[in-house]
Design a protein around this nucleic acid. Structure first.
Length: 496
RNA sequence: GGCGCCAUCGUCUAAUGGUUAGGACGCUACCCUUUCAAGGUGGAGAUAGGAGUUCAAUCCUCCUUGGUGCUACCA
């Protein structure tokens, strides 16, 4: 008999979708889809203190934007699916029933110790260089004492009674990992507010939702023994585990907000494409295997080729430069595909690329806009930088930037500029409006090259740099042509 | 501190008991070219250290070192 693979992504709604979370979700999704299984979304909101308004919606919209769709989840009809609800705060009755079972079977006990008592205990333990662990004081309470405390309204938590002995976690990525129960604390299962902790809710839900493979972050590996003991206490079969390595900052610490953007939505806002983000995070800790050098993968192709065996054990640094490269690859691919299928879509696509810098008056397809877009098109295809950067100078006259105009490499210094600019200005001013074509401009500039006996770059570089104020831009002839005679003259004269 | 995990170019990674240790990003030289870019051809750049097993270790074992995670009534 074959069981259908079921995986889940179980985020806590504390704000936004973290890129590390997105990768975890992606791997769980790919694994399930590869094997024809189901992928579910479950919201773990058992910590009321951390509740953030709108966080769940945010999480779901980022996930959907990425193209990671779930088969069962909180927003779906019919209670979200066969095992609903999919929001933990709505499943409290299930956790209560489960913990009652543990209480009667002796796998859990009520603890009445106060926060102060616990802190005091930990302080002493640390002073003695011992691992801070609960001393099981309340485990020794008689049933009568427990009754009495409850009757007098003393708040309590319910703790898991960790059995003695070793546990071996069979991890799909890491192999066998051994833990000794001596180093594992009696975990709180139900908090004094009556809500379960992650450990209880997670196990109860994964069992109830028939999860076959728990694919989650490495930070959960040390608490997996607790989960396995819980399954045993309930008499359930634990799922398979796969603990993923972390995503790291450049300094190899856990990827954090302090060192850059970690929210998927921030990358969405910056204009990254979903295909690029998916492709990039998929390759952070996974490789198609055996000498394959293909690097551009769509999500469908990832589903085809994904396997947990090719997931790495070590953490991976989130390297923006590579993301930029993926983004460019995908942008070009999408543009070329779209234009090939529908050439008339061209202008709209370019406008979409440049939207940020297009003033409303230009969107009505003015002659100037048409020219500007024409020069930008090739840059979309052949340049990694966002097309936005290639169009803004059309609409805003740049400052004179000596650090760009003067270039040692191009052999352009102040003297050259003083010599070249007046020549170019006067030569261009003689071109009649009807002759204002790229071809004519090219002819004119080439003539100056010959006349002054300079290298091409000594003319083209400074003119382009003055007109655009940018390190990278469309070519000088296109720029001059697109700007028009009047604007070109204005910008050149400004710097004389 | 305790427990766990991890370790190939700067980064993402391939290889596996025998390779000139391969690719990509980035960097870089040259070529092409109407400048930059893009493209083409090259270049620099790695098996953390020490033992052991072996004819042979990047690969297997152990130790060291380093990094990192967990050690909450957070997930």
């Amino acid at each position: 008999m074959s069981t259908t693979v079921r995986t889940r992504f179980a985020p806590s709604p504390t704000g936004y979708l973290h890129v590390g979370g997105a990768r975890t979700a992606l791997y769980a999704y790919l694994f399930a889809k590869k094997l024809g299984g189901k992928f579910l979304l479950r919201i773990e909101d058992t910590d009321q203190k951390r509740f953030v308004e709108g966080a769940m919606e945010n999480l779901m919209s980022s996930l959907k934007w990425l193209g990671i769709e779930w088969d069962e989840g909180p927003d779906l009809p019919d209670n979200g699916g066969p095992h609903g609800p999919y929001i933990q705060s709505q499943r409290n009755d299930k956790y209560r029933a489960a913990v009652d079972q543990l209480l009667t079977s002796g796998h859990a006990y009520k603890c009445f110790c106060t926060q102060e008592e616990l802190e005091e205990m930990r302080r002493k333990q640390e002073a003695r260089h011992e691992a801070p662990m609960y001393n099981r004081k309340c485990c020794a309470l008689t049933p009568a004492e427990v009754e009495e405390k409850i009757a007098s309204g003393v708040p309590f938590v319910i703790r898991q009674k960790i059995p003695e002995g070793m546990v071996i976690v069979e991890d799909l990525i890491r192999g066998k990992v051994r833990f000794d129960s001596k180093s594992i604390d009696d975990q709180v299962l139900v908090k004094s507010d009556g809500f379960p902790t992650y450990h209880l809710a997670n196990v109860v839900d994964d069992h109830d939702m028939e999860i076959t493979h728990v694919i989650r972050g490495e930070e959960w590996l040390p608490s997996t023994p607790k989960h396995i003991w819980l399954y045993q206490a309930f008499g359930w079969t634990p799922p398979e585990y796969a603990h993923l390595s972390l995503l790291l900052n450049a300094d190899r610490s856990k990827l954090s907000k302090r060192q850059g953007d970690v929210a998927v939505e921030e990358y969405i806002q910056k204009g990254y494409m979903r295909e690029a983000i998916i492709n990039f995070i998929a390759f952070l800790g996974w490789h198609p295997g055996k000498g394959i050098e293909k690097e551009i993968y769509s999500i469908e192709e990832l589903v085809q080729d994904f396997s947990l065996e090719n997931v790495h054990k070590s953490g991976a640094i989130f390297n923006i430069e590579k993301l930029d490269w993926y983004n460019w690859q995908w942008r070009r691919r999408k543009f070329l595909e779209a234009v090939e299928h529908d050439p008339s879509a061209r202008t709209a696509l370019i406008i979409a690329e440049c939207d940020q810098y297009l003033a409303p008056e230009y969107k009505n397809n003015s002659e100037l806009l048409a020219r500007a877009l024409k020069t930008v098109e090739e840059k979309i295809i052949q340049n990694p930088k966002p097309a936005n950067d290639y169009i803004k100078f059309f609409f805003t006259a740049p400052e004179f930037k000596p650090e760009i105009v003067y270039s040692e490499k191009m052999k352009v210094d102040e003297a050259i500029v003083k010599q070249v600019v007046p020549e170019v200005t006067s030569a261009l001013s003689e071109i009649s409006d009807s002759d204002w074509t790229e071809e004519k401009i090219k002819e004119t500039l080439m003539a100056i090259v010959a006349k002054l006996g300079l290298k091409n770059g000594q003319i083209f570089w400074p003119i382009r740099a003055i007109l655009t104020g940018e390190q990278f831009s469309p070519g000088v002839f296109e720029v001059v042509w697109a700007l028009g005679k009047e604007e070109t003259m204005k910008r050149l004269k400004n710097i004389v």
